[in-house]
Design a protein around this nucleic acid. Structure first.
Length: 235
DNA sequence: GCGACAG
DNA sequence: ATCTTGTCGC
């Protein structure tokens, strides 16, 4: 398939590319042993037209911080509902490139396949990296669910439906707090996605990987540690 | 035609 | 995403 591909596309070209790429998304588990989970997120400094992407690598199941990196670059694309990956993925990939250890699973802020064309930024990144990914969004892009059927207790969830199909789940990661929208990205099933999200939830609405990445992306005092001489043993 | 619309 | 203080509840 066409990965890599350019990211600065017109909306029409981007949508056409999504239709093509969506054909290659795999929702069967190909998740081997999970020892490292990465969380990624991005913040914007509108005044300087800069994007600050962050990646935090955690050990699993301990969830101890192993690595954290920041990557900055000018914003290239505007935010267009349904085309978020074209705005954020380039920066996020810049941050992921700094990882010394390859993650076994990546949790992304945004939708996985819970998207109009079944390829939100979570799924898109999974395809690009060829690594299992999970989409963890704070709000809905598309889909509906039975609000009454979702219990208030942490751990409960209900399926997210779109055009008669299950595209994800509304997951209560914390008691009496708005649910997170969870959907598989690539190389993983919905059930497994929910399992890892709950295993990474530690008393906050956002699971640890994305919660820490979110915090780091907004950090203005962060100074990237001394670049090591060790070569990366993957990307 | 009219709303809805990840971050 | 970002603009922003205090405040209610576990």
């Amino acid at each position: 398939m066409q990965v890599p591909h350019p990211w600065n596309l017109s909306s029409e070209a981007a949508i056409a590319l999504q239709h093509e790429l969506a054909q290659h998304i795999i929702l069967e588990d190909q998740v081997g042993e999970v020892r490292y989970i990465a969380g990624v997120d991005m913040a914007i400094h509108e005044e300087h037209n800069m994007a600050q992407a962050a990646v935090v690598l955690l050990s699993f199941p301990d969830l101890e911080i192993v690595e954290r990196h920041i990557y900055e670059e000018p914003i290239q694309m505007p935010y267009v509902p349904g085309l978020l990956s074209f705005r954020e993925a380039p920066s996020v990939l810049g941050a992921i490139r700094k990882l010394r250890q390859k993650p076994d699973l990546v949790m992304v802020d945004g939708q996985g396949i819970a998207h109009p064309r079944r390829i939100g930024i979570g799924a898109h990144l999974g395809l690009w990296l060829n690594i299992p990914t999970i989409g963890c969004a704070k709000s809905l892009l598309v889909g509906h669910y039975d609000k009454e059927a979702l219990d208030e207790e942490a751990g409960s969830w209900v399926p997210l439906i779109y055009k008669k199909e299950v595209i994800g789940a509304m997951v209560r990661t914390r008691t009496r707090v708005n649910p997170m929208i969870i959907s598989p990205g690539h190389l993983i099933s919905l059930e497994t996605s929910i399992r890892y999200v709950l295993a990474c939830s530690k008393g906050y609405r956002l699971p640890e990987p994305t919660r820490l990445a979110d915090k780091l992306s907004k950090d203005k005092t962060w100074v990237e540690p001394e670049a090591s001489e060790q070569p990366t043993l993957w990307s």
